[in-house]
Design a binder for these strands. Structure first.
Lengths: 207, 207
DNA sequence: TAGATTGTTAATCGATTAACAATC
DNA sequence: TAGATTGTTAATCGATTAACAATC
């Protein structure tokens, strides 16, 4: 159970630590240090140690951290030590690309259901999954106990889709539509809008 | 020219303000207030006023902000009042979806060049653009004066691609590869890794 | 005018960092 | 042992918010 007194900004860095550890492991390292991790991530070593200290003591003075151990701990803390089923809604260009994306495997998530309301797409197969009608979504989500969903519909449909998902039991939504959706209290939403990132960078271009 | 004393965290919120204004405008509003904007974004009205005050005075006491005026000002500040050409590298599933994505139009960016190194993809047409060989990338970027690029290659190629882009004059990179790339000082990088967002949310799921 | 909202200041709040004892 | 690195405390730094005079 999450300890409610841990700042969300700390939680937000844990996945970065996990990703960096995975990379170091792939490169053949067995042990690392807060300094090495910080170097790789552009974060101070003090911050990494402070962040981890919220959850326990995972290192050894003079040595550092065993990558395997720390990875396992972070996976447990983030609840990605088992695989979540994820529903994907909206199977247009973007949705299909997401469905075909191989990067979810081994990071705790597996797209298990595809939904769309367009007659041309319903019944279509994408990466081994069949697109199901939006009408059936609530039932399927409930029956399967799905807790995480991604929305890749046009902006105008996103709020309505979110309402249905939440009603059916979804607690976390990753929204690709460029619109802020309203959700009730315990539900989490994160957004992916590439233009926001581009605009944040264009400010700094001198040219 | 960016005033270097303005915190990056403030710059990061300006695109959100711009997006919210665009939405309000589409809904038929002409005028808004820091309170209304904050409501929509989940940000305090005081913060919005403080952020904007770094750049000038755009509102009117007792009334609020003219949406059209504030939008234009934000576009100017963020340098998206003209359209940037953007190079896209890596034309696999994800790259093709990005190339087909319609959401860049009118927000300051236009994908103008596609690059890949796979013989099957070179010469192929995607959304009206022809995929060019990676070998020619440096030359094209330089000749066209391209300053912004997106990387949608596998993680293992991302650093090498970034090096070429930067050498050719690119100053801002949006990286879809799940890896942190090293770049020299003035160059900006932003990342899009959906799993990071999912892991940040799974922590909070009680179930 | 009365009501509303801005821009700004000062206070508060929270996050980051520096430093170091503990100890492997 | 000597060197290195952790976990933690206290200090610093920076961001957010409350409050309000100015004024439309």
């Amino acid at each position: 159970m999450p300890r409610t007194d841990i700042p969300d900004i700390v939680i937000g860095r844990l996945p970065l630590y996990l990703r960096a550890l995975t990379r170091l492991s792939k490169e053949g390292h067995d042990i690392t240090s807060s300094h090495e991790l910080g170097e790789q991530l552009g974060i101070s070593s003090a911050q990494i140690r402070k962040d981890l200290s919220h959850f326990g003591e995972f290192g050894k003075q003079g040595t550092g951290y065993t990558i395997q151990t720390l990875s396992t701990e972070l996976q447990r803390i983030l609840k990605v030590d088992t695989e979540w089923q994820v529903a994907l809604v909206g199977i247009g260009h973007l949705g299909q690309a997401i469905a075909n994306y191989g990067g979810f495997a081994d990071r705790g998530f597996r797209i298990s259901h595809l939904f769309d309301n367009s007659p041309e797409r319903i019944g279509k197969r994408v990466n081994g999954l069949t697109v199901t009608a939006l009408d059936e979504m609530a039932t399927v989500i409930e029956e399967e106990g799905i807790r995480i969903a991604m929305i890749a519909t046009p902006a105008r449909s996103a709020q309505q889709v979110a309402d249905i998902l939440i009603e059916a039991g979804v607690q976390a939504i990753l929204c690709y539509a460029p619109i802020i959706i309203s959700v009730p209290e315990p539900v989490r939403v994160q957004y992916i809008d590439p233009v926001i990132h581009l605009q944040r960078m264009s400010y700094y271009i001198d040219d």
